[in-house]
């Protein structure tokens, strides 16, 4: 086993959707301040695994979860824990950019407001800062009050990134965050991720192998609800141990 400081560690995670066994005995560790990419064919449970990290799977009716997910050593499925604190710590970027039905400014300020920051000056500062981090500031600084829905898809996804960062998370989850974007916008988002890994732990789900190779420091290969192989990106891509990993990377199963 390689040694690193795990930010999220998962042990014997089992997820059932009704009678359907979606995730089977998942045990993995997510390294701190690196980009971890979860790969695997569609329908293998990638998104479910991602959403179990911030307990967004709670929203799915009829789901049951057992096992351990620890963030910074804290068991997040413990009943006594305040789930909103977990989610504040773990930001999430959805598949499609989805601005909330309000202005650009209010989109970024939404999270901080929720968490009790109401002073205008402070909000202004936060909004500017994170729009800059997301590389959107110059494009929108003159129309912060206009509806976010008027932005292009690529801009919207960067806005979503700014919105996610504005609550100051430690971990960012991305569920195929570039799949709805044109190639140029997708490239920009990828670059953002590479910049951001200095300060954040990043977990991305993707089914695009080339993207995984470009971004990943660490790879988890999921197949039919099971972790087949996990480890440093170079090992997985260049010298996979498992036959199924080889087959997937070779393009034989998809």
């Amino acid at each position: 086993m390689e040694k690193f400081k795990p930010h999220i560690s998962v042990e014997k995670l089992n997820v059932f959707y009704g009678k359907h066994h979606v995730l089977k005995d998942i045990t993995v560790k997510i390294p701190e301040k690196q980009i971890t990419v979860i790969i695997g064919p569609s329908g293998c449970g990638k998104t479910t695994l991602l959403k179990s990290f911030n307990r967004l799977i709670d929203l799915v009716e009829g789901i049951s979860v057992s096992g351990d997910v620890r963030v910074d050593g804290m068991d997040i499925y413990n009943g006594k824990i305040d789930v909103t604190n977990i989610r504040k710590k773990i930001g999430m970027l959805a598949q499609k950019p989805y601005p909330l039905p309000m202005s650009i400014y209010d989109n970024v300020a939404y999270g901080p407001r929720i968490h009790g920051i109401l002073k205008r000056k402070e909000l202004d500062r936060i909004v500017e800062r994170y729009l800059k981090v997301a590389g959107l500031w110059d494009e929108v600084k003159d129309r912060l009050k206009s509806p976010a829905s008027r932005l292009s898809a690529g801009q919207q996804q960067r806005l979503c990134l700014a919105r996610t960062l504005a609550v100051e998370p430690e971990i960012i989850l991305g569920d195929e965050p570039t799949s709805a974007l044109d190639p140029v916008s997708a490239k920009r988002i990828e670059q953002e991720f590479i910049e951001l890994k200095k300060d954040y732990t990043i977990v991305i789900v993707t089914h695009i192998l080339r993207q995984a190779k470009r971004l990943a420091d660490h790879v988890i290969f999921l197949y039919m609800g099971e972790v087949i192989e996990a480890g440093p990106a170079r090992e997985i891509f260049e010298d996979p141990k498992e036959a199924r990993t080889r087959a997937y990377i070779g393009g034989e199963i998809s």
């Binding site: 911030n54 967004l56 929203l59 909103t84 604190n85 977990i86 989610r87 504040k88 710590k89 773990i90 930001g91 999430m92 959805a94 499609k96 989805y98 909330l100 039905p101 939404y110 999270g111 929720i114 968490h115 979503c160 919105r163 996610t164 609550v167």
Partner: peptide
């Protein structure tokens, strides 16, 4: 999505 985004922000 609106629900998810808001909850994901804590």
């Amino acid at each position: 999505e609106v629900r998810e985004i808001s909850l994901a922000l804590g």
